[in-house]
């Protein structure tokens, strides 16, 4: 698993340590990958462009198997939902 945000590597390192995350956060300050996934939220954070929250599962060949975009940035994919999607994808 990887995460992607607009934050700098230093900021992401701080978040990983603080939240004890077991996966890397990649830095996309110019929103190149965020745009490639169509997730730009213009002015989403105090006037600055950020990513809309979203989760994708890619298969072994890099194809999108599953994706989830929530309606609210408070409401994220639940771990059980992700595990179920992974289980279905591997069948």
């Amino acid at each position: 698993m990887i995460a992607i945000s607009v934050d700098s590597p230093e900021e992401n390192a701080r978040v990983i340590e603080k939240l004890r995350l077991g996966f890397p956060i990649l830095s996309d300050p110019k929103l190149k990958v965020i745009d490639a996934f169509g997730l730009r939220h213009v002015g989403g954070m105090m006037g600055q462009d950020i990513s809309r929250p979203a989760v994708f599962i890619l298969d072994e060949s890099g194809k999108v198997l599953w994706k989830k975009l929530t309606d609210s940035y408070r409401i994220r994919v639940r771990p059980q939902e992700l595990l179920q999607a992974l289980s279905n994808a591997s069948k």
């Binding site: 607009v6 939220h41 600055q48 990513s51 599962i57 890619l58 072994e60 992974l86």
Partner: peptide, 14 residues
């Protein structure tokens, strides 16, 4: 490549 991958996009600015 060669294994399934979860990519989660965060809003950032924690």
């Amino acid at each position: 490549r060669g294994r399934p991958l979860i990519i989660s996009f965060y809003r950032g600015h924690w």
